[in-house]
């Protein structure tokens, strides 16, 4: 699989990262290097080997169904570029 300029543009757009047109070829090359590395990994035979999900054997930590947080709208909104009447205010998005 090879990444061209258009694919690089699309990936950048999906990630909402602005990339100027002249920077795209270099970005596509970097992607191809990464994919090449992954292809190398794909050559390793892993038949019958369980995927490793953690370095030490661990069980997913659980919490109880208890309300422990909240009532901190001021802190939640503190970094918002714009907040009004307790809401985040963003440029209008209408479907």
């Amino acid at each position: 699989m090879s990444i061209d300029k258009d694919t690089a543009r699309k990936v950048a757009h999906l990630a909402r990262i602005r990339v100027e047109d002249d920077a795209l070829p270099a970005l596509a090359d970097e992607f191809n290097t990464i994919l090449g590395f992954i292809e190398e990994l794909n050559e390793v035979n892993v038949d019958g080997i369980e995927p490793m999900t953690s370095v030490t054997p661990q069980r997913l930590k659980r919490r109880e169904d208890v309300v422990t947080e909240g009532d901190q709208a001021d802190k939640i909104l503190r970094n918002a570029p714009d907040a009004r009447e307790g809401f985040f205010a963003v440029p209008k998005v209408v479907e």
Binding site: R63, V67, G70, F88
Partner: peptide, 24 residues
């Protein structure tokens, strides 16, 4: 129908003040 959210300890109560039931 839980009291707290799937991955946080914030309340699921309907009709609260805006952004009152929000964990970090």
């Amino acid at each position: 129908s839980s009291k707290a959210k799937l991955f946080s300890g914030a309340s699921t109560q309907f009709g609260a003040e805006p952004n009152a039931n929000v964990a970090f």
